[in-house]
Write a protein that binds this DNA or RNA. Structure first.
Lengths: 233, 233
DNA sequence: GTAAATTTGTGTTATAAAACATATAAATCC
DNA sequence: GGATTTATATGTTTTATAACACAAATTTAC
């Protein structure tokens, strides 16, 4: 179990964006109802069709939101990094989860019951506006994703995915190596293609000197060209 | 111009869900800043990349939200019926529109500046929760649409689209004819396929006695089987 | 009311991507 | 630390769907 002082630091520092919207009294309520949990690599946080009950705040690690479709096919819908919130959409929609969440790597999550969050929203409009803003941006992203996944060819979709990873998780110290360690299968699930085609297309990108690959480490070498490929499908 | 009494009826009756969330004072503010506009068939209401300024409330007619992609391909993202609200997502996200809206048929829209709406949201949590709920349901729908459009085959996607039209706009008096008059091209844009393939697949469905077609009038004859086709791709 | 434009319908061809097959490499497990 | 599972890699075949082509029907415009 984490120390109380450490907990307060996490709440104070890391929940920043949401935290700042709160009154002292509301902060106390959140602090009292807050706990955190560690998740192992690939551990499921919640699964499709379950009833949403908590707001999750990713404090450390990386999380994927994904949905199982036809056969064994899986689509990764969104990626989360510290400090981002998830798990609230289904609760607000008053429906079971339509997607699942899992840790990409060992992660630490802050957990707050949605009931508490909802009570505070009913009194605090800044918090309400925070969620309105988050949901609105997510919905715009989903609409754009629909076009990317349905209209672009394999090369465009994979280029898009690599740039998304760069935007989301950034680069290592060298300014080029993606700061995420991801299987080819996950990469395929992110870009709506089979694992074979993700591997094959990655190989093409290497031979075209757009990227460099060392196992799961991917270095972006020619980002402008990758953007061009992403843009024109 | 519409008569004042008529305007009040429209506001009072048709804006119901949103209207009920308001205090008398807020109702007055909305009424003072409300106007309505008629749109012709296929007329654009707003276009991608424009700056969002208004909340639109569809009072009469049908509206499609669509996004242009690669080449001339268009994807219909969402459909609206009276009384539904749209146009607010991009404003809340603080970004230009990522999609366009157009009338499917002659339509009447209620228009309220988002600035006014936002001011009221800052004071009225019920209104905030209304938008949180709407956005959350839309986002869940978009996530599900991603799976439908990327993983199902043509037949599954078209069956899905026909059922969506039934759910959204319902049936004529006969309880079977879709209450929407839509071109094959729109049907194709809704189900992510070429117009040729929409026509062809529609023909297959007719010969399988799942539907009956008379020009743009579509009768759903075997809904359970259509659901099966939609479900299994 | 007739000409022009658009939409619908259908056949044929081309192609992108999945499916399948199999080998090698790497990671995980007793 | 050797065995077993899992992930990566690549070649081949199959298939779903787009692209193309054109005729007929319908709608729109003047």
């Amino acid at each position: 179990m984490i120390k109380k002082s450490s907990l307060e630091r996490i709440i104070g520092d890391d929940l920043a964006e949401l935290w700042n919207a709160l009154t002292p009294d509301e902060k106390r309520i959140i602090a009292e109802n807050f706990h955190y949990e560690r998740y192992k690599k690939n551990q499921i946080i919640y699964a499709e069709s379950e009833t949403p009950e908590n707001l999750y705040c990713l404090l450390e690690g990386k999380v994927k939101l994904f949905k199982s479709g036809i056969g064994d096919r899986v689509q990764i819908l969104r990626l989360y990094r510290p400090v981002q919130y998830f798990g609230y959409r289904a609760y607000f929609a008053r429906e079971p989860y339509v997607s699942s969440a899992a840790a990409f790597e060992p992660s630490v999550l802050g957990i707050i019951p949605m009931k508490i969050v909802e009570e505070i929203i009913r009194k605090n409009n800044n918090l309400a506006l925070f969620f309105i803003h988050e949901l609105s941006r997510n919905l715009g992203g989903a609409d754009t994703k629909i076009i990317n996944l349905t209209q672009k060819h394999i090369r465009g979709r994979l280029a898009e995915a690599l740039l998304l990873l760069a935007d989301n998780y950034g680069y290592e110290g060298d300014g080029a190596t993606l700061k995420i360690y991801m299987s080819r299968e996950d990469l395929a699930n992110l870009s709506n293609m089979t694992t074979s085609n993700a591997i094959r297309t990655l190989t093409s990108f290497v031979s075209e000197k757009l990227i460099l690959v060392d196992g799961r480490r991917i270095r972006i070498v020619n980002e402008p060209q990758l953007r061009k490929i992403s843009k024109f499908g």
